[in-house]
């Protein structure tokens, strides 16, 4: 079962074309990593899915096209997107950040349950729930960002560079919890990562992008074990 099917996707920033015809398919309930160097177009791919850039081509989510749909409505279809830099509402408290994340839930009990669930994944956030989000450490802010994504109870979660600026240990902890979220809640995850080693350890599928094109796709294990690929595209 494919949750997301992208065919011939092209995207522009102004007049600069940044995606040159991409074909990507995501399995329902899968954990997929998008790898590649800076400027490969990974972030643009996520922005295209969320409706933040103008695109040509086809993006189909759960059988319906997302092309031309506004970002606010794409969330309503069940895609949560945690942008680069985490997008924290710095002056709001931790709990207010989560309530903002649960903006689309109408029922008070649902909101409370969703927030409670996020706290159960990241107990540290519960301790800091009345604290201003801007006072959290980088790792805690990333936990908050992921939580903000999942409280809307999405079918697909997009994460943009969750490891940036964090200590390796914290990154591993966060990726472990993401794995749990995937299995327990059945959320499909698409993560853009520069840290290929780590991403390939947790993901089950991976794509490699270069200058706006898809150059490789396969299971995480295949890609991780191919020395040639590693050297030429992932640089380690």
């Amino acid at each position: 079962m494919k949750v997301l099917s992208i065919k011939g996707l092209e995207a522009w920033y102004g007049r600069t074309k940044v995606l040159h015809g991409l074909d990507v398919h995501l399995d329902e309930g899968g954990f997929t990593a998008v790898l590649g160097a800076n400027g490969a177009g990974k972030t643009t791919l996520l922005r295209a899915i969320s409706g933040l850039v103008t695109v040509k081509g086809d993006i189909e989510f759960a059988g319906k096209s997302l092309v031309g749909v506004a970002p606010e409505d794409i969330v309503r279809r069940g895609i949560a997107h945690v942008p680069v830099g985490r997008g924290t509402f710095l002056a709001l408290t931790v709990e207010e950040n989560l309530r903002a994340g649960a903006y689309l839930l109408r029922n008070k009990a649902d909101i409370a349950a969703a927030i409670e669930r996020a706290y159960s994944y990241f107990p540290r956030l519960r301790e800091r729930r009345m604290q201003q989000a801007g006072t959290l450490s980088g790792g805690e802010q990333q936990m908050l960002a992921i939580s903000r994504g999942i409280v809307s109870r999405p079918r697909l979660l997009l994460l943009d560079e969750p490891s940036v600026g964090l200590a390796p240990l914290i990154v591993e902890e966060i990726f472990e919890i993401m794995k749990q979220i995937r299995t327990v809640d059945g959320v499909s995850i698409l993560v853009v990562e520069q840290n290929a080693t780590l991403a390939l350890k947790v993901a089950d599928h991976a794509f490699v992008m270069e200058t706006g094109r898809l150059v490789l796709s396969g299971t995480a294990a295949e890609i991780a074990n191919d020395d040639g690929i590693r050297r030429s595209y992932l640089g380690y």
Binding site: E72, T88, F89, L90, L92, G101, Y103, S152
Partner: peptide, 17 residues
């Protein structure tokens, strides 16, 4: 809350709907 969130980080606010 939505007004405050939108004022602080419009992009993030749009992404939560």
């Amino acid at each position: 809350l939505a007004i405050r969130a939108g004022a602080q980080n419009p992009l993030s606010a749009r992404l939560v709907g």
